[in-house]
Design a binder for these strands. Sequence first.
RNA 1: GUCCCCGUAGCUUAAUGGAUAAAGUAGAGCUCUUCUAAGGCUUUGAUGCAGGUUCGAUUCCUGCCGGGGGCACCA
Length: 532
Amino acid sequence: MKEKLRKLITEALKSLGIEAGDFVVEHPTDLRNGDYSFHLGGKDHLLHQKIVVYLNSNKPYYVEEVRGAGGGFVNFYLSTEFFKKSIGEVIERENEFGKNENLKGEKVMVEHTDPNPFKEFHIGHLMPNVIGSTVANVFAWNGAEVKQACYQGDVGIHVAKAVWGLLRGEKEPYPAGAKAYEEADESKKEIQEINKKIYEHSDEEINKVYDEGKKLSLEYFDSIYKRLGTKFDYFFFESDGGKIGKEIVEKNKGKIFEESDSAVVFHAEKYDPALHTRVFISSAGLPTYEAKELGLAKIKFEKYPYTKSIVVTGNEIKDYFKVLLAAMKLTFPELAEKTKHLPHGMLRLPTGKMSSRTGDVITAEALIEEVKKKVKGDEAVAIGAIKYMILRQAIGNDIVFDIDKSVSTEGDSGVYLQYAYARTNSLLERADSQGQTLSTDSQGLTLRETHGIEKLLYRFPEVVERAGKEYAPHYIVTYLTELAGSFNNFYAHEQIIGDSPESPYRLAITKAFNIVMKNGLDILGIPTPERM
RNA sequence: GUCCCCGUAGCUUAAUGGAUAAAGUAGAGCUCUUCUAAGGCUUUGAUGCAGGUUCGAUUCCUGCCGGGGGCACCA
């Protein structure tokens, strides 16, 4: 639609002998200002008038009227015919409505969640998990072939800490190891020794403890993915990335990487003054996360030759990732170009609530259980509430998770959307059982009376498209919330004007709303209970 | 010290350089009693400060104030 109008405007300008220049077709925030509008800039009133007159006398069926407005805006009001047709289109395409093929042929890999074996899956992992899988869905709806990957830190000092704890029979191996590492020099040395042995796979006893612990950890993660509805296509491990990464760095030592204090580093500030030096291979000869990630990029591409690789992680490694990309640009320029880092904020809880027995770490499961308590044990509602809270705002900002707000039944919550969807299910079912039919012919209902629900429904595909272009799933959340509000409004208003509830047109709108809500929630990964 | 991110109604958040800065919630008032009131209507209320660019700035630039994060062997 947007493109059609853009073309229309360009043609109009051309036939008026005006340079097309830059203009943006957009939705006015206020529906009274039309369904679409554009602005030419400058303040040539005469020109402005000429365009409006021209467009009005050459308008296609889908435009009802073109009006000039103050400040040089030109507003398009779409026709009733268009809206009726769009409702029909929603119903016809059903669970395909909203999909487009903009990214057809693209192969996208989204890496997210990345929990570390031997450690807990805490609330911090919920952010990348929810954001990553939603971004993956959004790209799929835009026509791309999408694979989801999980990268797990199965080697490194944190693992050594946990193994140290396991070897001593500690009940909570990781916290015990972490504490000992900080507090006792002797333990620190032991842990570093273990770390090396894990890399080398050289000690029988450690291998046994390690393998068993890793297996248990992965099973534990699997159970959480199941609950959250996450589906990974690939699992990568740091132990794999490390090996290859180290080779890559060593091959380029003296060229890209330099030796310094017996470690191998990359002086990123040489290429960009805003960046800093980072260690790629430690003085103990072990690859750091930087080198591992370099190796990972290669492994990923060999498994799945992507055209785009998205890595979802926390904000705190934003600068580090820039350094990594700078290094990748020199080693694998073609991969660096395809890599996009998507940093997100932290998930925090209001202080004082939910202290965890294991210390200051709160597991994802504990949070889910806590939310469940508030919703009569309904897992689908609890998961939806959590996902909604994460997705409702722009990626990158911190979130203070307020449990009570997350399960609020009014306004801004996942429950509200799930309820709106479930409600239309029963309306449709009732109508169906009474043999009522739907029709997109308005039968006496005018658009004014329907309060603009159609004016939102047809926009769904645009929202999906924009969410993909800007990595902004929150556009979809905002849209669905607005749509649900509009539907309530529409429904309440129908009661007031006394129209028959069995109006075929109303039924058609209800059906269309039901479809869009379902599709939207599917993209967000929010469960859609049929009944509530 | 330096680099990056953030600062919008009481609170939580929106706003591809555009129109009277948008919602939810909280506050005030009103509304049904046949279909889910988990609803609807009305109302109060905001861009940290000072400049600059622009026809037009929450958005871009500079400085300041305030909060968070990174800055060599953790990830």
